[in-house]
Computed example of a mutant assay.
Amino acid sequence: MGKKVKAKEHEREYEDELRLLQIELVKLQRQIIAGNLRLLVILEGRDTAGKDGTIKRIVEHLSPRETRVVALGKPSSREEGEWYFQRYVAELPSSGEFAIFNRSWYNRAGVEKVMGFCTQAQYKQFMDSVNEFESLLVDSGIQILKYYLDIDKKEQAERLESRKTDPLKQWKISPIDQQAQKYWKAYSIARNAMLLKTSTSSAPWTVINANNKKLTHINLIQDLLSRVSYPGKDKKLLKTQPDIVMPCPPLGKKIPKLAP
């Protein structure tokens, strides 16, 4: 009985803290709209790391007209013949918009690299050009925040199994997800290379330890709000946990300790 009571208390504390942070997100959106600002948040990470659930908590009380969640599927045959960034450019935020990319052009540095969906030349060209591309976006007035959600191998295995047995999660199962454990080490190598090469001062990466879903939601939102300017910010709500939120230093310096 005591465990159930404690669980309910923790859930209530989470819901209360989340609500206060969602109020801060509404304040932020008001500023984005009033100032004709453009904010782009990129979420990458391991399969099952919790990108969908985190996005759901971010956008839950925001205006659907000025908030866009972008989750592009497999490119068409025509898109495969385009400049790689082209289909993503069409989804960038306009004035007064807040856009969240649930996976992004970094597919090329992760899934495509590991699964052999791109050539080595295409991968190299991407890695050599993405920083310059993002610099152009930042210079045009788009603020970019990049988050990588990291989980350990055991936690991923448990979440993958849960998807198989929960009828409400069946839509989340994909052939790529089913290969996640098999290619775990290759994804780790690709992740490390991406973080080392593409975390810049103008578009830095922040790694989130995502083993605990609720802590992921709270800490990522806290960090996001701490990195943007808006009137009436309640700074005392925005203190993150250093073992959950791990900023990546710029270009070529040591990355945080991550799941091997």
Rank of each mutant, 00 (worst) to 15 (best):
M115A: 01
F101G: 04
D139P: 00
K113I: 00
R159E: 08
L40Y: 04
Y123W: 15
Q120L: 13
P167A: 02
L40W: 07
K154L: 10
E80I: 12
L137I: 09
E66T: 15
E80D: 10
A90Q: 15
Q143E: 11
L145W: 05
E82L: 14
E112G: 02
D47P: 08
R108D: 12
V138Q: 07
P64A: 06
M127A: 08
R30V: 07
W83S: 01
Q122G: 00
T119G: 08
E91V: 11
R38N: 06
D139V: 05
A34V: 10
Y123Q: 01
E44V: 08
D47W: 04
E161C: 05
G81V: 03
W105T: 10
D128N: 12
S135F: 03
G141H: 08
F133I: 11
W105D: 07
K56V: 11
K51D: 05
Y106I: 13
A157K: 15
V138L: 02
K74Y: 11
Q125N: 07
I144H: 02
R65P: 07
D152A: 05
I32G: 02
L168W: 01
D52M: 05
T119P: 09
I58L: 12
P93F: 09
A121I: 03
E60A: 15
L149A: 06
P75I: 14
R57E: 11
V69E: 02
K153P: 00
R68Y: 06
I55H: 07
D52S: 14
L37C: 00
A121H: 01
S77W: 01
V59A: 05
E158V: 15
I142G: 06
V41E: 02
R68P: 10
R163T: 04
C118A: 14
S63Y: 13
H61A: 04
L136M: 14
T54Y: 06
R159L: 09
E134N: 12
G73M: 11
E60Y: 10
Q120W: 10
E155H: 09
